[in-house]
Amino acid sequence: MLTTLKNHKSIVMLSAALFTITVLFSGIYTFNGINAQSLEKLTINFNTLTFGPSTSNPLNQVYSLVDYQIKDLSLLGTTINGEMKVYAPNGTLIKTSAYSNGFTPTDESGTVQFRTAIPDQSLTNVLVNVTFTDLNRTQPISNTISSGVAVTP
């Protein structure tokens, strides 16, 4: 009987420990999720995304129009930046494009253009990621959008 009581006590203690650990990890995950969400001061999505011949040089170019919606109105009238990263199908970063002096949103919503020439003319498709950042491009302030795009003649 004493052995059975010890086994029950051990099972209860183990269950309590597992419950406590589960609650702690779940709380940490929720807390981190809240922090990540609060960094998004605006949301973005692709309006237009193309990959094809440039009108100004013989290289193919990636061209995107990105729509934004400001969630943190303190961004209005401040200079921010954004990056468009272009990857080869194997995941290799080919090119990063950004504004040299940033841009200044003046409305709660709008559209920003990114464009870059791709030196490797053998590529027929690429992956494009865009994120808006602080002016120095060190801190993301938006969600990251991603899409594959194939060459169009």
Rank of each mutant, 00 (worst) to 15 (best):
Y99D: 03
L123K: 03
L93V: 11
D134W: 04
N57G: 10
T96N: 15
Q61I: 02
G110F: 10
L59K: 11
V112G: 02
L93M: 07
G91H: 10
A88C: 12
N125L: 05
N81M: 04
V66K: 01
P105H: 10
G77P: 06
V62I: 04
G102C: 03
L73P: 15
A117Q: 01
T92Y: 15
R115Y: 15
N81I: 00
G82K: 00
V126F: 02
Q121A: 14
A98D: 15
T106M: 14
A98K: 12
E83P: 01
T111A: 15
I118K: 01
T133Y: 05
S109F: 12
N129S: 10
Y99M: 12
P58T: 12
T78R: 08
A88S: 10
F114I: 00
V66R: 02
T106K: 14
A117P: 00
S100G: 12
S64V: 03
V130C: 03
T106W: 07
S100M: 13
I70L: 04
V130G: 00
Q69P: 07
S56Q: 10
Y68I: 05
V62D: 00
L73V: 09
Y68W: 06
T92W: 14
A98G: 08
N129W: 02
V128L: 05
E83V: 10
V126A: 03
Y63H: 14
T111G: 07
G82C: 07
I70K: 02
S122Q: 15
T96A: 09
Q121T: 11
N57Y: 12
P58F: 12
T131R: 03
N81H: 02
T104S: 11
F103E: 06
S109V: 08
T96L: 11
S97L: 01
K71I: 08
I94K: 11
V112L: 13
P89T: 06
N57V: 09
Y99E: 06
S74V: 07
P89K: 10
N129F: 07
F132N: 00
F114P: 00
S74H: 05
S74A: 12
S56T: 15
Q121R: 09
D120N: 12
G82W: 02
P105N: 10
N81L: 03
N101H: 10
Q113Y: 10
V62R: 02
F114C: 01
L123N: 04
L123D: 05
G110W: 12
S97T: 05
V130D: 01
